[in-house]
Each structure stands twice: as structure tokens, then as C-alpha cells.
Nucleic acid binder design. Structure first.
Length: 589
RNA sequence: GCACUUGUAGCUCAAUUGGAUAGAGCACCUGACUACGGAUCAGGAGGUUUGGGGUUCGAAUCCCUACAAGUGCACCA
């Protein structure tokens, strides 16, 4: 559309004797209710034209029709100059851009980005909140890849700390040697069971102590179970062989469980980091900071940074006993990641409860003089809430990831059975289909919302399969595939181009042409929701086209071929967009 | 208490980054198949964009203020 802007600049210079920049002009798609495809907003130009918006628009419109070959006609409504472009222009866009194999493919931009996501604790199975994280991280990584970045997907596993010791201790005390094999439980669920059990037993002890006259605070500190857990953590840090061995066993169970869930979610990682390896790393950075006088030491030996000048607090970066805190560790991990990959950007996909932490983390790194810290970004997303409020794993009010996935497949099967379309599919294809549709519904549901907004999930109302949903888009794809098959479509370079296009066809071409724009916007905003909304609009436009124009019974063979080509490209763009969201599309459903 | 985020139809979400009469889906009502796949399409009804000020030719969007919800403010991670 640059040529229109350039012509408009010339128009302003000729008509009003003023130089303006292209950037100061606003082009937008013409609203559906008006004639035309492209609209120039002329309000800002009335200052230099010194006439009404209507007169200004008309003057520029006349100039453009005369000067620009591709512009067919114009109309002015209020301060909006609506331009209609010639059929030949839209057909050229279709044949020379959209219908080429490299359409929508961004060349490498030579930049490297790491996307850290998932980052689970190893003391309990994944729940709906983690699902949102995983889908977001995966999708953003794919979107960046499609924008020409080299992407490294990383998973920082939180495999150490007091919470793991709680599961370990409960297992030791009450587990009777239970394993995933003997219990038939998925490893992460088995470990999670003991995490819950710990909490239950711990609460009992606290109650007992309170009955004996201790305050709540005292009781929470003095309960034998928590003391034992703390002791276990100390032993872990000292390398006690029994504790380490138990820790390794239970972590293995959890990893096996996670691997299964990741597979079902279809997410993957190029690099794993383990906090048990990285938690000590930050200490050299603490020394560095002390040397540079970015940090200061208090009398008790603890190390702090004063961020009050930046409107934040004083923040502890190293304990008095010399052990590392969360911040120490994350400073170290950030440095480690940079040293290994020298990335231009690095994202942390982490919930918005940690907004403050990352703000501080990035600021500290900048103060330490790490220029690469400019490329760090916290992709913060809202919590997933239930109608009853927040999910709490210890109170059993979580929506478990594995249960949810299974339920989605059951619902997908039920829907498919009602419609009866897959009745004679082979059994294996049916199973695949239920998974594709169920996950399509779930993933689309979670990704169509802007990341930073909180998400309400009602487990009692199953996720929709109609309307603004994943299955709607999948259906559109499957139907196109069906038409292409029936029309014996093979992409043939020796086609005869058509000369005219209908209104819907034009809409569809415009929609398709927008793909790279939205793809770039999705990357800029780190927002899969942009892609989700785009592909929905595209599917809707295609469906309208499908209903209004006959493809296989087109008036002429050339028109039929054109419509098949248009359909084929639409299918490709739908598939491509859905894949960016981590959603598969079925060939039939 | 302080800080950050959010507030749009009954419900779930959009709004080309300040542009036209605020758009979709679900739910509700009315239509469209002797079929290129009805998980679709066409139409109806539904709004003081939380309230109040301000900036602007123009505000859901920017500023101020009040309210509501969420999150954070550990020598936990």
C-alpha cells in the first residue's frame, strides 16, 4: 500500500504546497458498510488544506484517481476518503504474491531468541494454569520462528527446595514403598498425592499444637513435619546419599509423567535447565555487584540492592548465611543462558504474580552493566480462575491437565458421534481425530484471549465446538480439502488467469494479503491471540465465499480453477496459522 | 496501606494501537440443503465501553479521580 501513501504525499504537496511524511498519514481497511477497500483518513490534513474534511478528501481523491493507475474510483464520507482499486490490481496481488509458494514466509533476520516456558515444580502434576503457560510459550516460540528468528525453547525445571522435600518426606513416612508401577499411578500424580498428604498431616499437627496453647504462628513453625522437611532440605544440600537417591527416584517419576503430558499437549523443548544445577550460580554475580558497588552488605552479612531511586524497594540478593535466594539464582540463570547462546532476546513466560520479581531482576542486570539485559522480556499472563475462584492444588480445587485433556477428547468424540460424519473412518483415524478436535477446542479457547488478561474457565460448561472456536476453523479447513479433492485440484502453473473478481473474492484476497501483517504484529506483541483472531476472520470470510460462489459448478473452467486456487491458498493459510497456535487441522472430520 | 494489572451486550471475547453508526461467538428469535460437507450461511434483538471530570476535529483507547476485581509487597521459590 506504500504506493498509495506516496501518491497521497504528492497530492498534498501539489494541492496544498506542504511537505508531509508518509508516516503521518493513516491508511486503513474500508469498513464493510462503505464502498471501497482502502481508506485514507483526511482529518489531520485539514490543517494544511484549510478547507473542510469533505473538500480535502475530494481534492485528494481526484488527484489519486488521475495519478495512480491502480485506483478505480473514490468516495468521501465525512473525513474518510474511500478508495476502490481495480480488479486487475487485486488479481495481480493474488497471482503474484499470495499464490506464490514463499508467501508469508519471512527470511531469517539473523537474530536469536530464547523462550523459556513451562518451568514446572517437580512436586505435583500440571494443572490448567500450567497448560496456559505451555500453550503460550510454545505458540510464541513458533510465531517468532515464523518471523525469521532462530528460537531456542527452554524449560527451567524447579526440582529443588522445600516443596519437593515435603513430597519426599510424606512418601518416606506413609508411602510403604509405593511406585508408579505398583500403584498404577502416573509418576507426577503419585508424587503429587504425597504433597497433598504432607499438607493434610501437617495441618493436623498444627491444630494439635494450637490446642496445646501455641499461637498459630508458633504452631506452624514448630510442627514436627515441617521441621523434618527443613532438615531434609539441609541434608539434600549437604549431599546425603539416601536423600539424594530418593530425590532422584521421585524426580524421575515426575519427569516421566510430565513427558507424557507434554506429548499430549504437543509442546517441546530444545534445552532443559535444572535449578538444582543453577541455584548456586548467582553468587559470582553478587561478588561482581559488590565490587561495582551496585550492591551493599549489611552488618549481618546479607547483601542488598537499593532500588528506591527507581521507585522500588531495597531488595535482598544474598542471605546472611551466604546461601542464595530466588533472585540470586535467577541472576545466575540469566547469565548462564546468555553465556551459552548469546541471544538477542530472551523471554520468560511466567504468570503475572511475578511481575515485580522480573522487573527487579532485569533492572539489577542492567545496573550490573549487562547490556544484553535490554533484550530480556517477561511475558506475563493472567491467572486462570474457576467460577469458584482461584485454583489451589493443596485444596484439590485444581483442574488437572491430564484429566482435562481426557475430557476434551471424550467431548470431541460425543460431538463427532452426534454429527455422524466419521462413522466409517478407520478406528485409528477416529482416535486421532478426537484428539485433534478436542485439543483444538481447548488450545483455541485458551489462546484467543490476550495473554495479560485473566481467564475464566468453567469446568461444568464444556468448551464450545461451534462459532468462534478451534473446531469451527478446523471444519473450514477440512471442507476446503474436500472440495479440492472433488475438483481434482493440482497446482498447475499453466493456468489461464481470470479477469474479474466478485466482492467476496476480493474480501478473501484482502484477508489473505493481511497474513504477514498480523504475523508480524503477533511477534511484536508476543501475542498468539492476534493470530487466533486473524485465522478466525479468515475462516469466516472463506465460509461466506463458499456459500456465495459455486466452485465446482463455476460458469467457466478458468473461474473454477481460480476459485480452487483461492481455496487452496486459504487452506494453506488456515493450516499455517493454526500450526502457529500449536493446533493441528484434520484432512476430514 | 503502597505498587502493578484488569474493567466493553446476559455470558466469553474483538476493535487495524487516537478514527466512521463500538464488532464477533454463545444463549434467545426468524430464515437457507432434491448438497462443492448444516461443526455452515443470511437476518433479528441485545451497549450511557464501571461512574465522574479533562485533552482532541475525533476517546473503549491518552491524563486525573472515584469504585470494583485480581496480583504482589519473605533472609519462600
Amino acid at each position: 500500500m506504500d504506493f498509495i501513501l506516496e501518491a497521497a504525499v504528492r497530492a498534498v504537496k501539489t494541492l496544498f504546497a506542504t511537505d508531509i511524511s508518509k508516516e503521518s498519514l493513516g491508511l486503513q481497511q474500508t469498513r464493510k458498510e462503505f464502498e471501497g477497500e482502502i481508506t485514507l483518513v483526511v482529518f489531520p490534513l485539514t490543517k494544511v488544506s484549510r478547507t473542510s474534511p469533505e473538500q480535502t478528501g475530494t481534492a485528494i481523491g481526484k488527484f489519486l484517481v488521475n495519478e495512480v493507475e491502480e485506483i478505480e474510483s473514490f468516495n468521501v464520507i465525512k473525513g474518510f476518503l474511500n478508495l476502490s482499486l481495480k480488479n486487475s490490481y487485486w488479481l495481480r496481488i493474488f497471482y503474484q504474491e499470495i499464490n506464490q509458494s514463499n508467501f508469508g514466509v519471512f527470511p531469517s533476520n539473523g537474530k536469536k531468541v530464547m523462550v523459556e516456558y513451562s518451568s514446572p515444580n517437580t512436586n505435583k502434576p500440571l494443572h490448567l494454569g500450567h497448560v496456559r503457560n505451555n500453550l503460550l510459550g510454545y505458540s510464541v516460540a513458533e510465531i517468532l520462528k515464523a518471523n525469521g528468528y532462530e528460537v531456542i525453547k527452554a524449560n527451567l525445571v524447579n526440582d529443588r527446595g522445600i516443596h519437593i522435600c515435603k513430597s519426599m518426606l510424606a512418601w518416606q513416612k506413609f508411602g510403604n514403598g509405593e511406585t508408579p508401577e505398583t500403584s498404577g499411578l502416573k509418576g507426577d500424580h503419585l508424587v503429587g498425592k504425597y504433597y497433598v498428604l504432607f499438607d493434610q498431616e501437617y495441618k493436623k499437627q498444627v491444630e494439635e499444637l494450637k490446642n496445646q496453647g501455641e499461637t498459630e504462628e508458633q504452631a506452624k513453625k514448630n510442627a514436627p513435619l515441617i521441621r523434618e522437611a527443613q532438615e531434609m532440605l539441609q541434608q539434600w544440600e549437604q549431599g546425603n546419599p539416601q536423600v539424594i537417591s530418593l530425590w532422584m527416584d521421585m524426580n524421575e517419576w515426575v519427569y516421566a509423567g510430565f513427558a507424557e503430558t507434554y506429548k499430549k499437549l504437543d509442546v517441546d523443548f530444545d534445552q532443559y535447565y535444572y535449578e538444582s544445577n543453577t541455584y548456586l550460580l548467582g553468587k559470582s554475580l553478587i561478588d561482581e555487584g559488590l565490587e561495582k558497588q551496585v550492591f551493599f552488605k549489611k552488618e549481618d552479612g546479607s547483601v542488598w540492592i537499593d532500588l528506591t531511586a527507581d521507585g522500588l524497594d531495597e531488595k535482598l540478593v544474598l542471605r546472611a548465611d551466604g546461601t542464595s535466594v530466588y533472585m540470586t539464582q535467577d541472576l545466575g540463570t540469566a547469565q548462564l543462558k546468555y553465556d551459552e547462546y548469546h541471544t538477542d532476546k530472551a523471554l520468560n513466560v511466567v504468570g503475572n504474580e511475578q511481575d515485580y520479581h522480573f522487573k527487579v531482576l532485569y533492572l539489577i542486570l542492567k545496573k550490573l552493566g549487562k547490556t544484553w539485559a535490554e533484550g530480556l522480556y517477561h511475558l506475563s499472563y493472567g491467572m486462570v480462575d474457576l467460577p469458584s475462584g482461584k485454583m489451589k492444588s493443596r485444596e484439590g480445587t485444581v483442574v488437572d491437565a491430564d484429566d482435562l485433556i481426557a475430557e476434551m477428547e471424550v467431548t470431541a468424540k460425543a460431538q463427532t458421534d452426534i454429527l455422524g460424519k466419521a462413522r466409517d473412518f478407520p478406528e485409528e483415524e477416529k482416535q486421532d481425530l478426537y484428539h485433534i478436535i478436542g485439543m483444538g477446542a481447548l488450545k483455541y479457547f485458551l489462546l484467543k484471549v490476550e495473554p495479560k488478561k485473566r481467564l475464566l474457565f468453567n469446568p461444568n460448561e464444556s468448551v464450545d465446538f461451534q462459532g468462534h472456536t478451534g473446531p469451527f476453523i478446523q471444519y473450514t479447513y477440512a471442507r476446503i480439502r474436500s472440495v479440492l479433492t472433488k475438483g481434482n485440484f493440482i497446482s498447475d502453473p499453466n493456468f489461464i488467469p481470470v479477469k474479474t473478481v466478485s466482492a467476496v473474492e476480493k474480501d478473501l484476497i484482502i484477508q489473505l494479503e493481511q497474513f504477514p501483517v498480523f504475523l508480524a504484529e503477533a511477534a511484536e506483541n508476543y501475542s498468539p491471540a492476534v493470530v487466533a483472531n486473524y485465522v478466525y476472520e479468515l475462516a469466516k470470510t472463506y465460509n461466506k465465499f463458499y456459500h456465495e460462489e459455486s466452485i465446482l459448478k463455476a460458469e467457466e473452467e478458468t473461474v473454477k480453477v481460480f476459485r480452487l486456487q483461492l481455496s487452496a491458498v486459504s487452506a494453506q493459510m488456515i493450516k499455517k496459522s493454526m500450526n502457529l497456535l500449536g493446533i493441528e487441522v484434520p484432512e476430514r472430520m
